[in-house]
Simulated assay, not measured.
Amino acid sequence: MISSRLYYASMMLFWVCYLSLLALVVTYAPQGGVSLAGLTLFADAGLVDTAVAAMHSIGLSPVGQSVVFGLLGGFSAGSAGLLLFAMIFYVFGQEREQHEARPLAQGAVACTALAAMLTTLVFFAGGQAGALLALEFGALGGLFLTVMSLGQSRIEPDVVADMGAGELEQVIADHAANHAAFSAQMASLSRHGIRP
Rank of each mutant, 00 (worst) to 15 (best):
S4Y: 02
M87S: 11
A115G: 08
L189N: 05
N178P: 00
A184N: 05
F92A: 15
D44H: 13
G130C: 11
L143M: 09
G138H: 03
V109Y: 03
G107T: 01
D49N: 15
A187Y: 03
I194S: 12
L71N: 10
G151T: 02
R102A: 02
D174L: 13
T120D: 05
M11G: 00
A101E: 02
G38M: 08
L145H: 06
F144R: 01
Q94V: 11
Y18R: 08
E100T: 01
A139G: 14
T40K: 14
Y18M: 09
S4L: 14
T119K: 06
A54W: 09
Y90L: 11
R96A: 13
H192N: 04
L22G: 08
S61F: 10
R96I: 12
V63H: 03
G126Y: 07
G127L: 02
Y90F: 14
H56M: 09
E95S: 12
S188N: 08
P62L: 08
R154S: 07
A29S: 15
L19N: 07
G64N: 04
S10A: 15
L71S: 10
A105M: 11
G78M: 08
L121Q: 01
G74M: 11
L133D: 01
G151D: 04
Q152E: 04
H175T: 15
F144W: 01
F144Q: 06
I58E: 01
A110I: 03
L84Q: 09
F92H: 07
L13Y: 01
L82Q: 11
A115H: 00
L22D: 01
F123Q: 13
P103F: 06
T27S: 07
V171I: 08
D158V: 04
L143T: 00
Y28W: 09
V68P: 00
Q106A: 15
R191K: 08
Y28M: 04
G81K: 03
V68W: 06
H192A: 12
L60R: 02
L41W: 14
P62H: 09
I88W: 03
T112L: 05
F144A: 13
M148C: 02
V160P: 00
L118Y: 03
L13S: 10
H99Y: 13
G64K: 04
G130Y: 03
G151C: 08
Y18K: 06
L168T: 03
F182T: 04
T112Q: 13
A134W: 10
G141V: 11
D158S: 14
G164P: 07
S76E: 06
V67Q: 06
D174F: 11
Q128D: 06
A139C: 14
F182I: 04
A165C: 08
A161F: 10
E100D: 14
A176N: 14
L72R: 04
V34W: 10
H179R: 13
Q65K: 15
I88F: 11
A115Y: 00
A80T: 05
Y28P: 01
Y8G: 02
M12A: 14
L104D: 00
I155P: 15
L143N: 06
A131C: 06
L168C: 08
G38C: 10
A51R: 01
A29Y: 05
S183T: 06
L168M: 15
Q185C: 06
A101P: 07
G32P: 11
M11C: 08
